[in-house]
C-alpha cells in the first residue's frame, strides 16, 4: 500500500511538472524573447535560457517612440470602467432574478444568456453605426459601454448563482425590521456574496483589459488606442524591434497575471458558489 502510494506520488509529480512546463512555456518564452537582442532573434539565434543581465530590457518599449504607457493607461481606464459599470448593473439584476418573481423575468434571463452566443463580429457594424449617431466613437467611454454589454451578463450569471445559495431567512429579519429592498441588498446580500462579486469583477476587468476588436474599430486617434490595439499593430510590421514588441506583450500581460494571482482563490470560490456545485 505504502509502495503504491509513493509510486503514484512520483507519477503525480512528474505529470504535474510536465503540465506546468507546457502551461508556463509561452509566458516564459515571452520573457526570454524580450530579453534577447533583436539581431539575435532575426538570426534565429535565441537561447533557451533568458539572459538575466538584460532583464531590464522588459521595459524597453517604454523608451521606444510608441506611446505604450499611455495605451496601458487607456486599457486600465477601459477595464476599470467596464468592471464598475458591469457590477453596478449586474448586482441589481442578479438580485431581482434571484429573489423576485416578475413579468419578463424569463425573457431577461434568456436575453442575458443569449448575449453569450452573439459574436462580436456580427454586432460590430450595427454598433458602429449606432455609436456614430450617438457620438460615442473615438472615445474610451464608448468602449466601456460596449464591453459592459458582454461582461455584465456573465457577472449577472455568477452573482445570481451565488445569491441563489443564500437562505431567505437571513434577509427576512431585516425585512421585518422595515429595511428597504435596496438596503437589504446592500447591507446583507452583498457582504455575503463578496467572493462571487470579486470573481465577477476579475472577469469583467479581463474583458475590458483584453478586448481588441471594438477597441481597434471604434478608436481612430493613436493616442486613445487600447494596449491590445497597440500591441496588435506590431504584428507584421518591422519597424519596431522584436525584443521591444515582446517587452510590450509582457508589460500588457503582467498586470493581468498579478491581478489574477492575487484574486485566484476568490475566483474559484466565486465561480462555483451555487452554479456548478453539482
Amino acid at each position: 500500500m505504502l509502495m503504491h502510494r509513493r509510486l503514484s506520488l512520483g507519477v503525480r509529480v512528474v505529470l504535474a511538472l510536465a503540465t506546468t512546463v507546457l502551461a508556463g512555456f509561452p509566458v516564459y518564452w515571452m520573457f526570454d524573447t524580450a530579453t534577447t537582442p533583436s539581431d539575435a532573434l532575426y538570426r534565429g539565434d535565441q537561447s533557451w535560457l533568458p539572459d538575466l543581465t538584460r532583464a531590464g530590457n522588459v521595459f524597453s518599449v517604454l523608451a521606444s517612440d510608441t506611446p505604450f504607457l499611455r495605451w496601458l493607461g487607456n486599457s486600465a481606464v477601459i477595464a476599470f470602467g467596464t468592471t464598475l459599470l458591469s457590477l453596478a448593473i449586474a448586482v441589481m439584476a442578479a438580485y431581482a432574478l434571484s429573489r423576485y418573481k416578475f413579468h419578463g423575468k424569463g425573457l431577461l434571463g434568456f436575453g442575458l444568456f443569449a448575449t453569450q452566443m452573439l459574436p462580436e463580429a456580427l454586432l460590430l457594424v450595427p454598433l458602429y453605426s449606432l455609436f456614430a449617431i450617438l457620438g460615442l466613437l473615438n472615445g474610451l467611454g464608448g468602449l466601456i459601454l460596449v464591453n459592459t454589454s458582454f461582461a455584465m451578463p456573465v457577472a449577472v450569471w455568477i452573482l445570481k448563482s451565488a445569491m441563489d445559495g443564500v437562505p431567505y431567512e437571513i434577509e427576512e429579519s431585516a425585512r421585518v425590521d422595515g429595511c428597504s429592498p435596496f438596503a437589504i441588498l446592500q447591507m446583507i446580500m452583498l457582504p455575503i456574496v463578496m467572493p462571487s462579486l470579486a470573481a465577477a469583477a476579475v472577469i469583467a476587468f479581463f474583458d475590458g483589459w483584453n478586448e481588441y476588436l471594438f477597441a481597434t474599430t471604434f478608436i481612430e486617434d493613436r493616442e486613445l488606442w487600447a494596449a491590445s490595439t497597440g500591441l496588435a499593430s506590431f504584428v507584421g510590421e518591422f519597424s519596431t524591434p522584436l525584443d521591444t514588441v515582446f517587452s510590450a506583450a509582457l508589460l500588457f500581460t503582467l498586470p493581468a497575471i498579478v491581478f489574477f494571482l492575487l484574486m485566484q482563490r476568490r475566483i474559484v470560490s466565486g465561480l462555483t458558489a451555487g452554479s456548478v456545485k453539482g
Binding site: 502551461a23 483584453n210 504584428v235 514588441v245 506583450a249 493581468a256 491581478f259 489574477f260 494571482l261
Partner: peptide, 14 residues
C-alpha cells in the same frame, strides 16, 4: 492557471 490570464493579443504574439 496562468494562460487564462494572458490577454489574447499577447497569446497571439507569442
Amino acid at each position: 492557471t496562468l494562460p487564462w490570464a494572458v490577454p489574447t493579443v499577447a497569446v497571439v504574439l507569442v
